[in-house]
Design a protein around this nucleic acid. Sequence first.
RNA 1: GGGGCCGUGGUCUAGCUUGGUAGGAUGCCGGCCUUGGGAGCCGGAGGUCCCGGGUUCAAAUCCCGGCGGCCCCA
Length: 479
Amino acid sequence: MSEREAFELTPKGENFSRWFDEVLFKAEILDERYPVKGMYVWLPFGYELMENVMNVMERLMRQTGHKRVYFPGVVPEGVLSREFRFIKGFEDSIYWITRLGKQEIKEKLALRPTSEAIMYEVLNRWITSYKDLPLRIYQIVPVYRYETKATRPMLRVREIVFFKEGHTFHATYEDAVKQVELEVWIYKKFYDELLVPYVVVKTTPWDTFPGAKYNYDLITIMPDGKALELGSAINFGDLFARTYGLEYMDENGEKKNVNTTSFGISERSLAALIAIHGDDRGLKLPPKLAPIQIVVVPIPSKGYEEKVLEYAKEVYNSLAGDYRVELDDTDERPGYKFFKWEMKGVPIRIEVGRKEYEERTLTLFRRDTMERSLVPFDDLKSRIESLFREIEEEMRRQAREYFEKRTVHAKTLEEIRENVGEKIVSFPWCGLEECGHEVEEEVGYGILGFEENALEGKGEKCVICGREAKHRAWIGRSY
RNA sequence: GGGGCCGUGGUCUAGCUUGGUAGGAUGCCGGCCUUGGGAGCCGGAGGUCCCGGGUUCAAAUCCCGGCGGCCCCA
């Protein structure tokens, strides 16, 4: 990390990667100085922020009938290895426990890379009848994957700390299909609240999660122009359940295979929020998610130290019951405090000095636009309410603008080539596998997925074969 | 997968070519003065020079291996 001043960052536009590392450290989200590669310490401020993000997810999960559970973090080799036949190379990414104390153990234990295997093993005993279905559970736990590529804080880690994995079980394939639609709905709602723009795509058959019928991904674009997968909803049909012997008895006493789905998100969601909204002064957080929504900064002047501080406390006390508010009465100078709280993305700062004390007014500063306004003390609460709404609206607008700037709807192969790399490019696709492969070869990047039937009846032509296009496919660099 | 650069108090770094007392800035602690966008002055604390091995009278410096970080290309 290149260190300048405590609250100075490498410009985001100059080197996004460096900016991102620096902002995580200087805004006190993560401490990257942990002696194991790909693993990081979550600091109090970062943890609280991530909790706020996860609370949004939990609320949505509860609303839609998912129950939180906890399954242990270690999985016996025998249970996990049944999964390996689906997933080539999977075994290489597992952390194994091979010793207990000084003794080698006979059956190795894995640190969970994801929990399908261990859940299905146990659910065999929970699910016996059609009356046990559907079953919808989830957990928020760390998972371990030995990434061999270069690790990146929050983006490519070896310990995913906040992995929300949902797992559902259904009597019929149709039910599983509906469930996946619900999962996509949940994720859309979630990212709408985070003010993170996205596109929902179905993955191509040749890029679908092994063992799955199909899966949907939510994708966003990072400031460096690379696509980032934000979440995935997978329909396994009965393929995965069969491996683990998951069966139920239907109304007629017949044994049937269970249909299952999985859907997951991680702290990448926060990484996207930070990356998309942050600027050269640091974080910009949505008021709903900010650990500190309002900071009160007293500005003393000679002879008025006590009075100004008293007034600042009055302001603080009037807000403390309704908002996450902090009074910064440390000895630092005002300018220092301004930079500090801007780095941490506090949406509103209230400046309280001699002038405000004498007029019984307050200066409000909003982080998103860096604008100040003066309000009478009596109007403070209503002004904060409307400011929060304005800030959220402005951030939402910027997110849309951001996304549009980094995407192009191409009509021809030539147009794809011109833009790909810099941007994420959509193009009309007939849906045939050979046309998809040809685009990938011609362009040199993989198809990220496609918006299913998005172009049906629109009269657009597949960029390869010229036949009527059904889907809008997306292609570009990715993480 | 291939190539390159780097690792020195909390942070950023000088020193390494040519082996011999680890220097600065920032941050931290105490004090004075101050406070409307990173103040200043005085005093102070803080270092296994990434780890292990080798060469040498002597290694931050040279050699080998490992760990970790960064960049470029596929």
